[in-house]
Each structure stands twice: as C-alpha cells, then as structure tokens.
Design a protein around this nucleic acid. Structure first.
Length: 519
RNA sequence: GGCCGAGUACCCAAGUGGUCUAAGGGGACGGAUUGCAAAUCCGUUAUUCAUGGGUUCGAAUCCCAUCUCGGCCUCCA
C-alpha cells in the first residue's frame, strides 16, 4: 500500500517514497519540546501526530529511525523581540522551580535539583516530558530507552553548531555584523521562502511586531537571522570564534538531524515534522542553513506539520484557564488512552478543538474497543466459516491511513467492522478454517496505529487523588443496603459516591467504579 | 499588505465529480435489561453539505463572488 502524504514543501499531496526505497529505511526527525516548562496538550497533539505517522509507516512495512530533540538550550528569549534578547527562559524556569521548591509543590520524584543550574532545570523537564510521553504511548520513548541519542540535547552539539556557522561564513552565506552577531544572509540562498512562502521580498519587516529596530539596522536584510550571539553575561554560554555566547535557535535541528540521520546521505533526511508554527521561521531557516552547508537541494524531503489545537473553541492560554498539561487531565479523571485518542482523532491538517465532551467520547470509544479485544481474546480458538469482519476491514483501514493519514475514516472502518461482532454473546460454534485469533490480530494491527489499547491498562489511578479505601467501603455499604432491599440508603450512598466524582457500575460479577471526567 | 487553511446534523467528524436517497462515534429519543439507575445490547435520529451564481448529463465535491472563522509573516507544537 502506498502512503500518500501532504508535503508542506510542495503544498500538495504526494506519494511517499524514502530516499533509499530498497532498504525500506525512513529517517524521521520530529521537532520535540522545549524543556523549560511542562509540555501541554497542544504540544502533545503535534508529537502524537508524528507518532501516528511513524506507526503508519511501520504498518506499511517501513523501518523508521526517528529522532526527537529535547531543546535544552535556554537561548530562547523571554521578551517579544527576535534575534535573542531579554531574559533566558531556562533562567526563568529555574526561578519558577525555586519558588515551587520553597512552596513544597515540586513533585516528590523530582529529587534534589538545583534551580540555579540550567542543566538541572532542563533535566527536570525532560524527565517530566518522558513520563508524559510514555503514558501517551509515544514510540520514540521506548527507542530512546535503548538508544538515548535518539532524543538528543542541543547543549551537547554546540561544537558542531559552531562548525556549521564557520562553514556558512566560509561559503558567504553568513556574516559577522557590526554588533558582533553572526547572521545568516537570506539573500545568499535563492530558495529561501520556498517552504513557508515567506520569500525575502515578501517579508514585511516587523509586520508581526516582534522585530527589534536596532538589530534590523545592522543586518543586510531584515529577514537575516542570528546564528551566533556573543553574550558573556548569558546563563548558558560557550566559547566560540565570535566570542563567548550562545547559538541561534534554528541551528540545533540542522546539526542534530544531519548528525543522527543524515550521515550517509549528505545531510538529506526523509521526513521532518513539527507544529504549524514551526514552518516559519524555524523550519525555513533550518532548510537554508542545512542546504547551504551540504550543497543539497533538500534538507528534509517531506515536511509534515500539525495544525494547532484549540480548547473549548478558544485559543489555549494560561490566562483563559484552558491551558492543560497531561497531568491536569489525569487529575480530572481522564485516562491517558482517552487523551491520546482525543488528540489524534482529528486530521492533523485541521485545527482540532479539544473539549471535555470529546474526551469522554473518546473514553467510551476506547472502552468499547477494549471490550471487543477482551472478547476476541476469550474466543480466539473458536473458528469462523469466513474471514471475520475485522480481518476483512483491515485493508480499508490501512487504505484510509495511507490517504494522508485519514484517521477518522480509518476509525469509521474499524467501528463498522467491530459492530458486526456480538460481544454480549459467545460466538456460535463453527468448524470453519478461520479463527477469532485472526480477528484479534487484525484489531491489534489497527491498534498498532491508534496505540490506545495498550495504554488502557496503564490508565492507573495511582497519580490521582482518590481515596480507594473509602470508595470500596461505600460500595460495600451500598451493596449491604441493596441486599436488605433498603433502596433509599443504597441510592443515598450512590449519590455520595457521585458527589466524590465516582461512577459505579453493577456487573453480574460485582460492582466496579471509575472516576467521572469533568472540566 | 502578503501567504495559508476552514465552514457537513445537537457535538466531534468522514466524504475531494456518478450506488451520497451523506461513513463512524458521542448525545438525544424509543425498546431490552435493572429494585431504580449506571453500564451493556437493539432500534430511530441530515432529501441535505455557510450563502449566491456558474461549469457539467450529473457537484458536499470543480470555478467565481460574498459572508464568517482560524493560523503564519522572526516567543510558540
């Protein structure tokens, strides 16, 4: 099955073929998080979509080598201006952690950290990111457990960044300006703007309101971007031929992608992903830097960008109170699997609206698939006269995903097939040559992309604040009242549980409970 | 000003010129079940695709215009 993917570079859907089609190897660089704060669900939408793409590539037979960077260079500025000014975000994060430490609100598993050490701050947030990502089933985490270099840190690649800048200066693609800062010259690279559409002639200097007029004056072109900033007062700084300072924030991806994925291909990689906001300037600048140093016409051959997530129809922001991390949602009773499905179920090139209603929708959806899976496992040795509905639907499921990752279409195919199984009853005895084991296998293959059924088990309540003992006592109390037909008391206890945010289900085998998800 | 997107039922959402008299999920409603619920199971739920034109034998799908909404144009996934 051929995968068709929309390529931001060409602005159209294309057939995906790797650089080396024979080997079935695909090199995939996913722009990862900045680690000076907790990642929020908007960040995770982008990472999860990259994960889905990777899983689809694997489903159709590719061998994917994926890298995801952990941006620990604190040079990202905290003020509104470009070209590196203002306070270091890693420093701000350190101050925040220091306050949290004093207030005793730091997670207990954080250990002893020194908030004045930017590397320790980065470690803290990398650790948090890995934990969240593991809960959400990002495959890159399991890879990095074995090969930590697959989740590289820019601070360990500064030497290579300096080499890249030197090469760009040699090639006349970069220059040292009168303020001592090294800039990339966008006019030296005719293809600048190909990815984003923001060609130098179209860029209205300062239109976004984030450009400092003073820096504009020293640059050859307003779109020229910083490669190295000498600044000895900076928290994170490294020696360089242009003075002690820090690298431009686009360098890291160029250097790490080429080092880890492009050694044998002169710096060309197959896929590069990120959020839509990365297209410009970040990815545009990466292309310019990389191609000007390798001489190749391409950096990544396919560019994959996920559109933004909004929350309850509003742009997510801390001031609106609709800014959520994974742990915020888990504390409200959501399972990681439901969060994963809610974040991947809208097509990656459509804006997605995260809602609590959608989250409960997703949870119920997963519960139904999980019941189906359990039922198939129970009956896997039973036989069928013809291929079962899931087996029959698998090609259509894959075809939908191969159509530019049409995940809603794929889920529709899955549900259509799933509804043909009567999970409330045992299958009728049949002597056919097909078995329910094949059905289970088909479901597992579908879930190899969705990635939610394995998460179901780990949707534990351990990190929530429920009083399990108290809940069990109340359930016992209610069941005692029920057996003596004291319905009034039984209902009162049930209401009490609901007030605690606990829903109960009376099954033939006993009573089970779960947290009620609410905003 | 430039460049991208999007508008399909109560909600999410597929569909990209011909079994579309429009998938799938949720919700709602009706039924089975239940002490009553919840959960589960069965059934019902868009003659219509933002609006107005056009192309075509045929349009939710293509074209034009209008309206509305969102994103980017050097913090951002």
């Amino acid at each position: 099955m051929t995968l068709r993917l929309y390529n931001t570079l060409t602005k159209k859907e294309e057939e995906f073929t790797p650089l080396d089609p024979e080997s079935k190897r695909v090199t995939f660089y996913a722009c990862g998080p900045t680690v000076y704060d907790y990642a929020h669900i908007g960040n995770f939408r982008s990472f999860l979509n990259a994960d889905v793409l990777r899983r689809v590539l694997e489903l159709v037979g590719y061998d994917v080598k994926q890298v995801m960077n952990m941006t620990d260079v604190g040079h990202m500025t905290d003020d509104e201006l470009a070209d590196g000014a203002g306070q270091d975000k890693m420093q701000v994060a350190g101050q925040r952690l220091l306050e949290a430490k004093k207030a005793g609100t730091l997670p207990t598993d954080a250990g002893e950290i020194d908030p004045t050490d930017p590397y320790a701050v980065a470690d803290f947030y990398v650790h948090a990111f890995i934990e969240d990502s593991r809960k959400l089933g990002l495959k890159i985490i399991a890879d990095a457990d074995k090969q930590p270099e697959l989740m590289p840190r820019p601070t360990r690649y500064v030497e290579q960044m300096i080499k890249l800048v030197e090469k760009l200066i040699e090639n006349d693609h970069a220059y040292v300006a009168s303020d001592g800062v090294v800039y990339f010259s966008v006019q030296s690279y005719p293809a600048y703007g190909e990815l984003s559409g923001n060609t130098p002639d179209k860029i209205r200097s300062g239109e976004g309101g984030r450009v400092d007029e003073k820096t504009q004056l020293v640059k050859k072109h307003p779109a020229d971007f910083m490669l190295w900033k000498p600044d000895a007062s900076h928290v994170m700084k490294w020696p360089s031929p242009w003075g002690e300072g820090y690298p431009g924030w686009h360098l890291e991806c160029s250097v790490m992608a080429v080092s880890l994925l492009g050694q044998e291909t002169n710096g060309v990689i197959d896929i590069h992903s990120g959020g839509e906001d990365n297209i410009f300037p970040h990815h545009e600048c990466e292309v310019a830097q990389t191609c000007c140093s390798t001489g190749e016409s391409h950096f990544a051959r396919y560019w994959f960008h996920t559109r933004f997530l909004i929350v309850e129809n509003q742009k997510m922001s801390k001031s609106k109170g609709n800014f959520y991390t994974l742990n915020d949602l888990l504390a409200k009773g959501a399972s990681p699997a439901a969060v994963r499905l809610e974040l991947i179920k809208t097509h990656y090139r459509s804006q997605s609206n995260f809602t609590f209603r959608g989250l409960t929708d997703s949870q119920r959806q997963i519960d139904r698939w999980a019941r189906l899976k359990t039922w198939l496992e129970t009956n896997k040795n039973e036989s069928l006269n013809q291929p079962g509905p899931l087996t029959a639907a698998l090609p259509a499921f894959i075809a939908a995903l191969c159509n530019d990752l049409n995940i809603s279409g794929a889920i529709g195919v899955l549900n259509d097939a799933a509804s043909k199984h009567d999970v409330a009853n045992s299958p009728e005895n049949s002597k056919g040559k097909f078995t329910y084991a094949a059905e289970l296998d088909a479901l597992n293959q579908m879930d190899s992309v969705l990635g939610v059924l394995d998460l179901q088990q780990s949707a534990s309540l351990s990190d929530t604040d429920v009083d399990v003992k108290r809940i069990e006592e109340l359930i016992e109390k209610r069941n005692a009242a029920r057996s003596s037909k004291d319905w009034k008391e039984a209902d009162r206890v049930r209401d009490e549980l609901v007030d605690m945010g606990i829903a109960i289900k009376d099954n033939p085998t006993g009573t089970t409970w779960s947290k009620i998800v609410s905003s």
